[in-house]
Write a protein that binds this DNA or RNA. Structure first.
Lengths: 218, 218
DNA sequence: GCAATAGTGTCTATTAGACAATATGGG
DNA sequence: CCCATATTGTCTAATAGACACTATTGC
């Protein structure tokens, strides 16, 4: 017996950059359809709970820990009678960004049903049309990083220019020239130096920066 | 009595460039809510008719004349309990492009309920949140024209480089340098010269061009 | 000193903007 | 010839890519 009205849902590709890899959060489904398959976090729209579909997407990310996602963006709408065996469905695909220092709180070694996986090496087939969703979400993220603004939302609150460059390289999948990269940053107003703050390590310390207060990833 | 399930709809901002102005198609609503207001063409998703929401959007454009829209693209999803007084609704906003030589067939002097209006001079308040939809659609179109490919779908099958430049100027809202513009076109593969075909007029004839067979506005 | 990273400087090929010059049709 | 548009050329400033150089830390 099929529902008369289409199901409306939001599915989110939550990205982080860890270990020099662009990673996405996947959940193992414990219900039919596609029981046992991996899928993007997603929930069905509940009009009494969700002010709009962005709220639905945020709710999809309310797993164990309450993640406050600093960037959430619509990617595309997927719809049709066959993408979900339960019947006609409409799903809005989102992408979201999480700083890498918050990634372990979402999925670590404890549970095996929530994992970060490298986008490059998709484990097994994903449920529904989530592989297409993921592809579009990655493409959108790449486009944005190429165009202009920088994905500060993937970095901790304090970061170095080297870390920023590496995140961009990982997303774009290619090496960037250090000098050219920093030249572009000169005109950027979205982040500023933290005077006197340095990241120390094995080698020469690096200046730390932070995003400006009202920074939004455009 | 409100419906339990959200309404799902597609609304389309259909653009054309006429009289050196970016114009959008508006319909006057003859039903409540917003009876008498102007609105973007839109219809409710019918699962038995529409393979997906793109089909819904196309159906929204099946007015009197059967328009074959050469470009249709999702812009954003609008959703919430208050945007439609009938209850919680989800609407996918699209934009579409129509060559100017086909514009008169859609809306002319005959009916007063279907009109082309200049985007610059929005007549009166639009129904629902269609003003926001229109704003986003225009922004998306601008972005695309700036980035790379050219909106050949707004021109007749045969066009001159001057006409192409004027269309871009109208969309972007600024003048472009003729020489620089043509230099960019040199690397463009999406359209080609029609050998021996010229557009004559009062002054020097201009070379005619046409889009390549499988051209898609990216 | 050495290794490895941080940060800066420089050269050059490419590109974009401004503007000029020439070409061609109808009066 | 004149006008208005089409088409091409040129100069220059800005930009991007490649690469080299210096600086600073721990060992």
């Amino acid at each position: 017996l099929k529902a008369i009205y289409p199901i409306i849902a939001a599915d989110v590709a939550l990205f982080t950059v860890q270990d020099d890899q662009l990673q996405v959060l996947l959940l193992r489904r414990d219900n039919d359809p596609y029981r046992g398959y991996w899928a993007l976090p997603g929930v069905v729209l509940k009009p009494d709970l969700d002010d709009n579909l962005d709220a639905t997407a945020r709710r999809a990310l309310n797993l164990k820990s309450r993640i406050e996602v600093p960037h959430l963006e619509q990617v595309a709408v997927f719809s049709g009678p066959k993408r979900d065996p339960r019947g006609y469905s409409v799903s809005i695909a989102y992408f979201a960004l999480l700083p890498r220092d918050q990634a372990p709180a979402v999925a670590g070694a404890k549970t095996q049903d929530i994992v970060w996986v490298a986008v490059k090496h998709p484990k097994r087939p994903l449920a529904f049309d989530h592989a297409q969703m993921l592809e579009k979400a990655v493409a959108r993220l790449r486009q944005k990083v190429e165009q202009s603004t920088l994905p500060l939302h993937l970095l901790p609150a304090r970061f170095t220019l080297g870390e920023l460059q590496r995140v961009c390289e990982v997303i774009l999948g290619c090496r960037l020239d250090k000098s050219s990269f920093r030249r572009r940053l000169k005109t950027e107003r979205s982040f500023i130096e933290i005077p006197g703050a340095f990241q120390t390590g094995q080698f020469r310390p690096a200046q730390l920066y932070r995003a400006v207060k009202d920074f939004r990833f455009q």
